[in-house]
Design a protein around this nucleic acid. Sequence first.
DNA 1: CTTTTATGTAAAGCAAGATTGACTATCATC
DNA 2: GATGATAGTCAATCTTGCTTTACATAAAAG
Lengths: 67, 67
Amino acid sequence: MKNRLRVLRAEHGWSQQALADKLGVSRQSVNAIETGKYDPSLPLAFRISECFGLPIEDIFLREEPSS
Amino acid sequence: MKNRLRVLRAEHGWSQQALADKLGVSRQSVNAIETGKYDPSLPLAFRISECFGLPIEDIFLREEPSS
DNA sequence: CTTTTATGTAAAGCAAGATTGACTATCATC
DNA sequence: GATGATAGTCAATCTTGCTTTACATAAAAG
């Protein structure tokens, strides 16, 4: 899964720490998700979606289309 | 997180096993998600979304609205 | 030059997602 | 009554999301 987190965060002028606080996770979690180390849980994805006022599908992008 | 998986699956006339096969997970995973034992990972949520042709937000519902 | 802020990354550990295998109950049908 | 399909659940196991702590770098500010 790729994501547009870094771009969106920059657009809002938020630091990783600031976003992490809004989401209730650690800064390292935000960084890890941005750098693609792993995907967020579904509940966290919903919180991110809410944070940017965008549907999940506009933030996270499938890489492996169905065949 | 609540979800409408059971209803949607019934509407399509699919067994848990059939849906599991489509999703590439075990029948027990489908059952566990339906009975609310845990939430699916984000990639799996995307596959489910794709399977039913509905956005994630129409299948999974937040229980804890932002205060 | 020193301090602060933002970021990258790594180790270690806990919690949650997800697996397989097995056993059970129910219902339909042969 | 036996058989097969569906579904609920438990135990054991493995993977992954997320944590804290810590250290390193670069840029900006004092």
